[in-house]
Amino acid sequence: MTQEQVHSDVVKILDDITYDWDLDFGGGIGPGTWLVADLDFGSLDVVELFVALEDHFGRRFPAQTLLMTEDGNYIEDLQVSELVAFVHGILTGEPG
């Protein structure tokens, strides 16, 4: 699966999750979209996002490697491009 295909699938999932959220964000979800700043994600929304990703791609993802920093803190926001690279890296065994 190419990174472009993963990007397309991830954006479809994000579109489906957020389509009735009454967000101010406009212009369509793209690689530079921030989950928290643009899409108003909270920590539990991230949990649901990973459930949706895992259901779609048919495997679990080690979310902690994406969401936690090396010093044990949680990241404050995440861009779609980072999420896509992470998913693609797990699926292909090639860390993005």
Partner: peptide, 14 residues
């Protein structure tokens, strides 16, 4: 809890 590079990562059961 699940092991993480530093400390633990807390997951919600489903």
């Amino acid at each position: 809890p699940e092991p993480a590079a530093y400390g633990i990562y807390v997951k919600l059961n489903d």
